[in-house]
Design a protein around this nucleic acid. Structure first.
Lengths: 124, 124
DNA sequence: TATAAGCGCAAGCATTCACTTGCGCAATAC
DNA sequence: GTATTGCGCAAGTGAATGCTTGCGCTTATA
């Protein structure tokens, strides 16, 4: 009896933290985004492209839907997934604030070339 | 004896899939990146800013180091963490390819406003 | 009407994650 | 010297993740 009580306290699919960063962390989900960004697909036609079960893809689609990256348009028995990538702007903004960190090297190179040029042509 | 053999097959901290997307999925890691991007910190001074144990932060630092987002410069007993965010350009590129998906609405709005303006002022 | 297709729900399972505590080691401070 | 500080390593834990299989519902097709 106690076992039953304890078992019931276990919530299997508890609402987890799901933000955009988390959503795009999984390569399968990125692949799904890639697919439906090019063209809407129903769940099964997505699943056909992967070698996991249909349910696995269905769950990934649910996750992407939950965090608003895709929207479902029901048509008959088909559920067409369309990309709704507004949320990606957040990621873009976050990454963008560090742009100088990875462009520094290019800047350095540019400055170096400029200096080189100056030395070659102008002397001042 | 068998138990020993089986026990030894269990690798506790097995090398997991760790790419940039995974690395930035965790809010704590993003916060760490934010900190050391502004200024290098040693591990303890990072840990002081969070209400988790020092080891927890140490592990996060290790993850970030493993996937190349930060580099460690040892100085005496201190280990200074510096940002090395080149890898973020990959994320930027990935997100960037969908830019039109979230800018469409702005474009639509712009077109709508233009149309509105036209109707108001020009009639053609 | 019977069969098939598209799909979600629910339960179970192995792995990974993020965290903890305890320990030890090297570098610095007293 | 001894004490303290900075830090990694190792083991353990609960929760989350990603997957599976089985079932049943609804919609389309034969």
């Amino acid at each position: 009896m106690l076992a039953l009580i304890f078992a019931s306290t276990y919530l299997h699919n508890m609402k987890a933290r799901r933000d955009v960063y988390q959503a795009i962390a999984d390569p399968t989900r990125r692949a799904i985004i890639r697919m439906i960004a090019a063209q809407p697909h129903n769940v099964n036609s997505i699943a056909e492209k992967f070698d996991v079960s249909r349910q696995a893809i269905s769950l990934q689609v649910k996750i992407l839907t939950d965090c608003g990256l895709i929207i479902i348009k029901q048509r008959g028995r088909d559920r067409f997934c369309e990309a709704q990538l507004d949320q990606l702007s957040e990621v873009s903004a976050w990454v963008g604030q560090y742009r100088r960190h990875w462009e520094t090297k290019l800047d350095d190179l540019e400055a170096y070339l400029k200096k080189l040029k100056k030395e070659k042509y102008g002397k001042q």
